[in-house]
Amino acid sequence: MADEVMFEFLHAEIISHVVSSNENEKKTGDLSSLEYLGFSTGYRIIERLTKEWPRFKDELETMKFICTDFWSSINKKQIDNLRTNHQGVYVLQDNAFRFLTRLSAGRQYLDKAPRYVAFTCGLIRGALSNLGINCMVTAEVQTMPACKFHIQVQRT
């Protein structure tokens, strides 16, 4: 089984690839392909992880699964805070997000932070999408290495 460190290095390489190919095409700041990579990974992995599980009762239970079991197994720690307004908005707060802890905690690299959270945004969106929840996931980094993920469920 592949070691965790492999994923971290791969993640870093993917970011560097996406960022540099964007620069070549003069699309600086466009992280959509990074998000999409996360989406397709999340979509596939969740199917494998939940195949032996009973069906989730409702949206809240699915959300809890994503924020507790799924989150802690990939990010090595539990989420620090989970809030919802019970109308389809969930806010996940991680005070030391895995991919930001290796960066300087000052303000110097704050503008680079989005590229380190885009993959995870996609991962959550993909996982939820395969579990039947369409949503939008955005991330907000105010002070490193804390990060807030906003999940907005799209109800039609």
Binding site: M1, M6, F7, L10, L37, T41, I74
Partner: peptide, 10 residues
């Protein structure tokens, strides 16, 4: 398993 599969799928 989760991390190994995450790596493979990524």
């Amino acid at each position: 398993t989760v991390n190994s599969e995450l790596f493979t799928l990524t």
